[in-house]
Amino acid sequence: MSEISHYSQLWHHRTPRTRLLMWIGWLALIALFVWCWQLMNRETIWFFVADAPRQAADIGNRMWPPRWEYLPELLMPLWDTINIATIGTIGGVVIAVPVAFLAASNTTPSARFLRPIALFIIVTSRSINALIWALLLVAIIGPGLLAGMVAIALRSIGFVGKLLYEAIEEIDPLQVEAVTATGAGRAQIINYGIIPQIMPAFWGISVFRWDINIRESTILGLVGAGGIGLKLQGSLNTLAWGQVTVILLLILCTVVVSEWISAKLRHAII
């Protein structure tokens, strides 16, 4: 192997085979994109799309200036929104805790039967947005705060349940072993060996979800589940764009404040 001419003249980053596969992959993605684009826009009326800048300018004109006199009317709905988020979070967390214990492979009483059920509850709750839960609940139990709270709770079960059961599966098994060795019962093992270990995760997850829930509960009113979203819906229906601006700004402030609170709380916990 003394002759340098033995080596290839060109240096390649990847082998030809992987490069070929990558090109095929990218081409396939482009083809898929074009196909989807055409399928999606079969019924798009391009005249409206072309008209959009004019519409945008029109809406912008109507939105400004904001109708500040509307603000006092929004305070009660804002209070409702915060309640929906808070009570909904509490409800969701209360249900999520046992679900998480059933779903964690190291605490589930029956891996064959109960664990799949718990996992299915988590997936179902996670796949369906709070707004869809609210849509259903308004149809079932009627419009109002209760539907909003239950919707938030149902959506939170999956989120909290998933993160919590992952936290349970990651605990230090030695501490559990030590508690078991003292002759403790099952409930005592959970109480002493597991709960102290997952406490920080539990509070962190709950506060995080509360923050998300504040955000989500602002719009639940669009389908009639109470809170500030009802006012938004009403203002949109009457084309009162000046009020819409006020509502959106208020939502924005609420979200910023709740994010700040949740960051502070989580910082305090960890």
Binding site: D172, L174, Q175, E177, A178, V179, T182, G183, A184, G185, A187, Q188, N191, Y192, G193, P196, Q197, M199, P200
Partner: peptide, 26 residues
């Protein structure tokens, strides 16, 4: 294998878990 996030006293008392009913330990 101590329960890291509990107090020393709780850790020592956890040795009695096999003797006390659940409500007492809770």
């Amino acid at each position: 294998s101590l329960i890291e996030r509990l107090t020393v006293m709780e850790n020592v008392l956890s040795g009695r878990l096999g003797y006390v009913p659940f409500w007492r330990s809770w």
